[in-house]
């Protein structure tokens, strides 16, 4: 009984250290294999190429992973950002405020406070068009948002979207 209790306590104690590994959000390691068409591969395609063509990746839950010094390509920034943060973006969009939706506004070229405010207000009032059902994928979300922006281009003139 004593040995069992001691072993259990040691395992519990050691397991408690698991939090310090802070998850397996990691990449740039030599031995990780990802499957074709995985979320990670899609995300990788949006970063600048690593100078090591065989740069491997580590992916966790589709939310992390890139080359260890890869910068997100300019034309993929919005897609990358939405892929990672869509869940929280839509919550803040419905509220009409928040740092995630503000960041989305800046990705759409809204650099001043007033232009960001207008972007967020437009996205809030047109929320139903941007997120019409509960399973909107990131690409669809962006298309819907782009459509809304086009329809409100006069109001959003100060957002310099390319």
């Amino acid at each position: 009984m004593k040995r069992v209790l001691t072993l259990v306590s040691l395992l519990i104690a050691f397991t408690s250290f698991s939090s310090w590994a802070a998850g397996d959000a990691g990449c740039g390691l030599g031995s990780v294999i990802i499957s074709k068409n995985s979320k990670g591969l899609q995300l990788l395609a949006m970063t600048t190429n690593s100078f090591f063509l065989t740069q491997p990746l580590g992916i966790t839950s589709g939310t992390s992973g890139c080359s260890s010094s890869g910068l997100v390509m300019k034309d993929k920034e919005i897609q990358y950002y939405v892929e990672v943060n869509q869940n929280e973006i839509i919550r803040q969009m419905s509220m009409g405020q928040g740092d995630k939706v503000e960041t989305l506004a800046s990705l759409y070229g809204c650099q001043t406070d007033s232009s960001k405010k207008i972007f967020i207000e437009v996205s809030r009032t047109e929320f139903g068009k941007i997120q019409p059902h509960s399973h909107v994928k990131p690409n669809e979300f962006i298309e819907n948002l782009n459509q809304v922006i086009n329809e409100n281009s006069t109001r959003l003139a100060d957002c310099h979207m390319s």
């Binding site: 959000a25 031995s31 580590g58 939310t63 992390s64 992973g65 890139c66 080359s67 990672v84 929280e88």
Partner: peptide, 20 residues
Amino acid sequence: YPGGFVFLPYHQLIKDYSDL
């Protein structure tokens, strides 16, 4: 376990640690 450095957009780290 191999431990390495990850270079990520900050919003991704915020999502992992702060949001989730």
